[in-house]
Design a protein around this nucleic acid. Sequence first.
RNA 1: GGGGGAAUGUCCCGAGCGGCAAAGGGGGCGGACUGUAAAUCCGCUGGCUACGCCUUCGCAGGUUCGAGUCCUGCUUCCCCCA
Length: 419
Amino acid sequence: MTDFKPKSEFLVTLKERGFIHQCSDFEGLDALAAKGKAIAYVGYDCTASSLHIGNYISIMMLYWLQQSGNKPITLMGGGTTRIGDPSGKDETRALRSIEEIDANKAAIRTVFSKILTFGDGASDAVMIDNADWLTKVNWIDMLRDVGRHFSVNRMLSMDSVRLRLEREQEMSFIEFNYMIAQSYDYVELARRAGCNLQMGGSDQWGNIIMGVDLGRRMGTHQLYALTTPLLTTASGAKMGKTAQGAVWLNAEQFSPYDFWQYWRNTEDADVGKFLKLFTVLPMTEIRRLEALQGSEINEAKKALANAATELLHGKAAAEAAAETARTTFEEGGAAAGLPTVEIDGAELARGLGVLAVFVKAGLVPSNGEARRQIQAGGLRVNDAVVGDPTAVLKPADAINSGAIKLSFGKKKHVLLRPV
RNA sequence: GGGGGAAUGUCCCGAGCGGCAAAGGGGGCGGACUGUAAAUCCGCUGGCUACGCCUUCGCAGGUUCGAGUCCUGCUUCCCCCA
């Protein structure tokens, strides 16, 4: 792929921004995309109530697809989630209830419209749910029409299956069928919507390519496959994990402020890569930011945080997060935009123990942890290190804004507001 | 069907003569150094009304002053033989 020189705007953009890992046929796809005839889908599991940063990459691919005049399809896995994708997992996850899947689906779908334009136009995005057909298939028909095209020998050699078998880890029949369902989805989308490209993470390569094969056997038009590299940080960690868990895209589960902070804390070596993948800043600007050295890299990190947050949560939210960060970290103040926890004013008047306060604020999980952190000098009230675990907070501790600023470590701050 | 192993601090791996809140890693968190980075160094990594109390070693019983450790039954997983 390194020697391939794409001509279409779509592939040129994807290539220069580092989205491409593997493609089934660069030339063929390039020709299609150049004519604005690429109709691409990405499937999203409904295993959680929000998508996370890993999914964000694929949404960005759909974004660039749409920007270049092609058509994106977001496929909700309302049907496939009932089966459970074995790819990249050591063991079977608990099956989710149908109610849970539907609830997740409803929560997830809102995020796409922030980045893609939906509608009836030629390059407008559409959303489709594979429950529409997967829940209706007849087993015998399925076996005769679709199943006969699958070689079990080949299925056993797929990474998602083979790795499980090699490690002697259990794999149930239902999971074994996942790739069939996903392959069938591709064919169904080709027939229903003229879809001709499926994109996804590199762990999906096997599933996608099986769909391409199935399409050929079942007589669809030519199908294509395109995957993104598995993203890790420069120091080798999987991307998207923080102390609180995954980096979610829904604001309710991961606030714009936290989202901004996530990017602001990017490792130096990753800034350029992330700018290309997670922002729509022009390449000329990205090259300038990438070239910064030493502490100047902080400018690039702020640009990254601003641009990524703006794209997902909007300009106002991004600016608010940036301003909160500025007053908190650059002035050492207590910005009003910090996460706020309300407490009963009467309770505060009676006096609240520091231990309980930090637990109440959600900064530490237990009194014991609070104690340990005090030992280590990790807790601060209004920027003063807490040295005494028996200290008590009173209304008089509230500073100018009427709130008390609690800090855990250098980066986590919460305002405690009496009401 | 027969025989032999294994399950440990609910993040993971993993030691554990009958006195154990339980070795050691990894990961994570905090501190120092920096630039809200990385690397490095140091500390912490069951709960509580905290010089004490409570709950943890697959599940349920038993022996014992005392059980992760011994006995019995059960569950799950692995290996060998048929």
